[in-house]
Amino acid sequence: MTDYSTPLFYIVAAVVLIPAVLMVTFRNLIYSAAAMILCFIGVAMVFVTLNAELLAISQVLIYVGAISILIMFAIMLTRQRSGEIRLFFHRQAWLALPAALALAVTMAVVLSRASFSTTPGPRNPGTSDLSNLLFDQYAFPFELVSLVLLVAIVGAILLARRERRR
């Protein structure tokens, strides 16, 4: 098969990066939320290119399905008078961008400097491998994560409950 992977990668990268930038720069929250969803889909596509289908599907399920909706709810609940949304901090905004870029550059340099022993092409781990790892080697973290989720649920309910005057 002809080598479509490189142009495909660039398309997928674009699908990820452009909405990300839009998300951050959009004035209206709804638009930035939509951009985020697009970005998550992009990420799912990246997983696909990395032969991690299971991950891609779970990514779509969780991020696009659950978390984005959650954020949409949050946006709805905290409807603000649209007028005064000031996009950035006046003070820190101009500092944040260069800082982020500097961060990116340094990380890139560090990564480029580092040497990884890499096998030539992407390998193809099946779902069975994942499940083996997940349920015997990492069983304990798995249980732990469930605990974390439990705590998060209880916490979220408590925090967001409408305060009843006692």
Partner: peptide, 16 residues
Amino acid sequence: LFSMFLGLLALMVAYL
């Protein structure tokens, strides 16, 4: 957050 990032940045630059 900003100062944390600066810290991270400084660390990496130092590493470099």
